[in-house]
Design a protein around this nucleic acid. Sequence first.
DNA 1: GATATTAACGGACTAGAGTCCACTTGTCAA
DNA 2: TTGACAAGTGGACTCTAGTCCGTTAATATC
Lengths: 216, 216
Amino acid sequence: MMPRIDLTTIDEGSPAERHERADAAANRALILQTAERLFAEYGVANVCMATIAEAAGVGKGTLYRRFASKGELCLALMDSQMSTFQAEALARFRQQTRAGASYLTQLGDFLEALVFFTDRHAPLLAEVQHGGLLRTETPLNLPHFWQFMTVSALLRSAARNGELAAGLDIDYIGEALLSPLQIDIFRFQRDGRGYTLERIAAGLRGLVSLLGEHPT
Amino acid sequence: MMPRIDLTTIDEGSPAERHERADAAANRALILQTAERLFAEYGVANVCMATIAEAAGVGKGTLYRRFASKGELCLALMDSQMSTFQAEALARFRQQTRAGASYLTQLGDFLEALVFFTDRHAPLLAEVQHGGLLRTETPLNLPHFWQFMTVSALLRSAARNGELAAGLDIDYIGEALLSPLQIDIFRFQRDGRGYTLERIAAGLRGLVSLLGEHPT
DNA sequence: GATATTAACGGACTAGAGTCCACTTGTCAA
DNA sequence: TTGACAAGTGGACTCTAGTCCGTTAATATC
């Protein structure tokens, strides 16, 4: 249903699988470790790239060779947790489908899980999304990409299964359901409006439930 | 229903209405004119504050005294058009209510108008929103503020009028309906996905119509 | 083991947003 | 008219993201 996306191989899918030089790989690991430590100590937004480079004992050029922007660095730091999240979501879908749950129910559950994921990784996601959704040549939009693919696939399954009201623009609705999880809006709702995660999740579920077929 | 917000008086609501010094007022006008000209010629994103200051023949300090950020400058440039948009929306609401249109219909119309407004002012809005929704002490969130007030008021009227399905979180839905109009998402849909304005407007209308009461 | 190739490296550099502060000037009250 | 002072002014300064390019060194081949 949803393609598994492995961030670590997205760039280097070339024929001969040319491997990274040993020193480069060591630096990559060093940089990631260093960034993680500094981010944990001072907060993602308060640590600048020059500081990371210095703390890791490499030049800025090296840092930027490994990670084309602060956003990509942050994305790399979330990589394993994104993979885990994806894998768990897939497992849940299979299990729920087997148990006969409707696709709309699965969509609601997925969005709820995404609310908590977004909350946990808000600082990193903020940097990732500052890189912009639009720049399709970078991997920065990968989170949104697979989120959309997932939501879209569930909506299509729901439609095929006769769960959806007629006349809906499924692609548009996929985007619309995900919009409130864009980090700026999410943070505004959470910190500005003071909405709890539960309220946000319930709100999204409410929208999903409206998509169900109604005997008008 | 919706408070009319006048950006020009938002800062100086103090008792004695202390007036701006003449030279300062002249500079404000000069800066606005200059910025408008440069933005038109080179594009909002390609003109930096230092250039505006230089072209206007003032120092950067002066520029930043008048407008605390590039976003505020952009907001000031949209001021009159925002007021016009608001006034027209209000007039339309009155007329539609008189003609017996449902509040949900009015909400759909309002969102459609907002799609076109957002499209027309996308470059300026991008700068405004980069200032951040969260910083409530600046006027940068005014556009979202009045948009939300309007949507929220319409939803409440609809609820009072028995047009809404039961059990909805009206405030949350207000935010959710506006999220796809956040500039990053809007641009992604328009430029990245290639959705037409008509499709976006129709998508939003579709969501609004789902809010209607269903005989489940 | 020597050598050529090519990636990796580092840090000076650019660019743009926003801050600071010493200096100037319009305004108002006496 | 004048003088005090709040308001206004200019531009050097800081901070951060991201780029460039001359130098260095790991690897692969002979």
